[in-house]
Design a protein around this nucleic acid. Structure first.
Lengths: 253, 253
DNA sequence: GAGTGGTCTAGACCACGAA
DNA sequence: TCGTGGTCTAGACCACTCC
């Protein structure tokens, strides 16, 4: 029952109570919560108020509602890793792209589809690639799947001057992937930089990645540059935060 | 007006329409949306339905509601960086902790408060620090502020065997901070590892970091280890995703 | 005081899932 | 068929902001 004198809104009291019961283990991952109509009885509030409370927990990502079945405590996500070493030249020479290397480590069956196209550079892309806005860039738009489910979106952009007459403009870039083709063409990658952020997904991202509500996405912008600090490629990656964790490691000096 | 024949729920149609108007620039950052009662008129639905629609946008983090004032398009976040170099030995020797270095770069006035305590190692902490569960660890719980506002939470844990009789057990660790004291005691840090994830905040995090709804947190677990792979410290950091972006950089080989 | 969002009610009907 | 969540209504009163 809610305390009408506490000043705290009823739906927040209900949300806090349910959250506490989940944290304490009274409801465990995979368990079904009492139905909304049962909660109406036990807390003595109306159904819209119960729904407000459940929606708080949904937007926190700790429960998921399934139409016709019930509301369930979300199971803790299994974790994959993206290691720094997956971009090493050695891995590349063994013919593995980064995603394939992850698949081998984590034991899932990888697949991906690619669309290749060309577009004029936007303001942002031009600045990052140090070219002029409107200059033609090659765009590789990839959707990556693990055991059939979409787990990663990546859009890679390179100045078209670097990709003409290379397999980078083909769907299949061949052994070693884009980076191997770049190096063959004399563009040696000296370093990578990644900028990592997080935000709530846009609707099309949420459906593509099959995200439950309350699950953010991790965004990674990776830049590959030469020893002369010339940018070769910019890769915008979107990952579901409930299935990915990024790993970075570096020596202290 | 909503289309009753489309099959799409009315509140989602309203949300999509408002989202499109924000994306197109019809409503710009900082602008007030029409009041809920005005939206009731223009879309021809009830007020709870309008509220459902607005709540969708709130949980996506693209608008914020202010009681008694209106609903506003969120202003794009300014960006700070956590660079890898901020943990360099050089920075440490100049007496700057990582957060102070950020402050100097970004031009804000830093402050922080620390609580120091001791506790038995949890299962997770024991595994990461390679000690036994229950072994005593020193806990430094820090709240970091920029211009008075909380911008970062960090809980650092070290085996107490490493911190006894050092300033690490004091609130003020002195010039160069915890890492400098560790090295003075003969524990030379060889490398750092960071694991980065994202999730929706817990309620106390949301209030401490003054997060609007629909803003995730970035979580960083940093491990400092010696050349012999002995873990010295584990640091659990929570950052508001609308104010932070992490930067990592490494050579290609 | 007028206008805003915040909360809450007591229903109604629909769509989905499982028995 | 029955129980579940999904959607929606037409109000009501409150708390906050601004004039």
């Amino acid at each position: 029952m809610v305390d009408r004198t506490s000043g705290l809104p009823a739906f927040r009291q209900v949300a806090a109570d349910l959250r506490a019961k989940i944290a304490s283990g009274e409801y465990e991952p995979g368990d079904r919560l009492p139905s909304e109509r049962e909660l109406v009885e036990s807390y003595g509030v109306s159904r819209p108020t119960i729904r407000d409370a459940v929606n708080v927990l949904r937007s926190e990502g700790i429960v998921v509602a399934e139409h016709g079945r019930g509301v369930f405590v979300r199971r803790p996500a299994r974790i994959r890793r993206l290691a720094r070493s997956r971009l090493s030249r050695q891995a590349r020479e063994s013919g593995q792209g980064a995603f394939l290397a992850d698949a081998a480590t984590e034991g899932f069956t990888p697949s991906s589809s690619v669309k290749v196209g060309f577009e004029p550079a936007s303001e942002r892309v031009a600045q990052l690639l140090q070219i002029e806005p409107g200059d033609e860039v090659t765009v590789r738009d990839r959707v990556m799947r693990a055991d059939g489910a979409v787990v990663q979106l990546a859009v890679s952009r390179l100045p078209r001057t670097l990709t003409r007459h290379t397999a980078i403009e083909q769907v299949d870039t061949g052994h070693g992937g884009t980076y191997a083709r770049l190096e063959e063409a004399g563009h040696r990658i000296a370093s990578f930089a990644e900028h990592v952020g997080a935000r709530m997904p846009e609707p099309q991202e949420a459906s593509a990645l099959q995200l439950g509500s309350g699950v953010p996405v991790i965004t990674v912008t990776r830049l590959a540059v030469t020893a002369e600090r010339t940018p070769l490629e910019i890769n915008d990656i979107v990952l579901p935060a409930d299935r990915y964790e990024l790993a970075y490691e570096w020596p202290s000096d």
